[in-house]
Simulated scan of single mutants.
Amino acid sequence: MKNYRIIFVFVLFSSIAFAQTKKSFGLRLGVNYSNISNTGLDARLGGNGALFFEARFSDKYALQPELMFSSQGGKASNNTNEDLRIDYLSVALANKLFIIPKAGLHLLAGPSFDMDFENNPIRLINGNSDSNVTPFDLSIFGGIGYEFPFGLILEARYKQGLIEIDLFDFDIFSDSTNRNRDEAFNGTFQYSIAYKF
């Protein structure tokens, strides 16, 4: 019986705390500058966009779940048909720490689960392939942003993949520089503008 009372009190205080938070929704759009490490690819430009929900618990801290689209990959440096695009649908959880209370400058960090939402084919920009790519990635990200009083937000992030991207039978790995297939990871700079309603 004592355990039920403890659980009840915990749920009650959690509900009160959440009810007192400032909640808002928003939309973010931006560009990616991405690459896959230890391949023969250069960085490529892509797009990103997200819907997010922000729960502001205090002047210094907010929690922001996000549903995001992110176009990543790499660009062939030798002008062949091997430019690579991987489109991810991501669920992310951003922790936002406001450096000065009631000011807009903030740091952010969190995890992201990314799924290649086009059934995992390698999409060559100028060609075709029957090869596949690892269907998901687990990433961590960090960045800095500024939120204006009227809801406009500017952000810059770096997102690092933690799961090896296995590009099955894709010959960007088979060049003469003896690159290590075990170290092929997503790395993406994201620059975006958002508006919070």
Results as ranks from 00 to 15, higher is better:
Ile36Pro: 11
Phe69Asp: 06
Met68Asp: 05
Ser77Asp: 14
Leu45Thr: 15
Asn48Pro: 07
Lys23Ile: 02
Gly73Pro: 13
Val91Phe: 15
Leu107Gln: 05
Ala109Glu: 03
Ala109Asp: 02
Ala103Trp: 05
Ser71Gly: 14
Met1Ala: 11
Leu63Asn: 05
Lys2Ile: 06
Thr39Cys: 13
Leu67Lys: 08
Leu108Asn: 09
Asn38Val: 01
Ala55Glu: 10
Leu108Ser: 05
Ile36Thr: 04
Leu107Ser: 03
Gly40Tyr: 04
Ala92Asn: 13
Tyr33Met: 09
Ser112Gly: 04
Val11Trp: 03
Phe18Cys: 04
Ser90Pro: 11
Ile36Val: 15
Arg85Asn: 15
Ser77Glu: 13
Ile7Met: 08
Leu97Arg: 01
Asp114Ile: 03
Leu107Pro: 10
Ile7Gln: 06
Phe98Asp: 11
Arg56Ile: 06
Leu41Glu: 05
Asn81Pro: 03
Glu66Cys: 11
Leu51Lys: 04
Thr39Val: 09
His106Asp: 06
Ser34Trp: 07
Phe53Trp: 13
Met1Pro: 12
Val91Thr: 14
Asp87Cys: 04
Lys60Pro: 02
Ala19Thr: 01
Leu12Ser: 10
Pro65Met: 12
Phe10Met: 08
Phe8Thr: 08
Ala103Pro: 00
Ala103Val: 03
Phe69His: 11
Ile16Asp: 01
Ile99Gly: 09
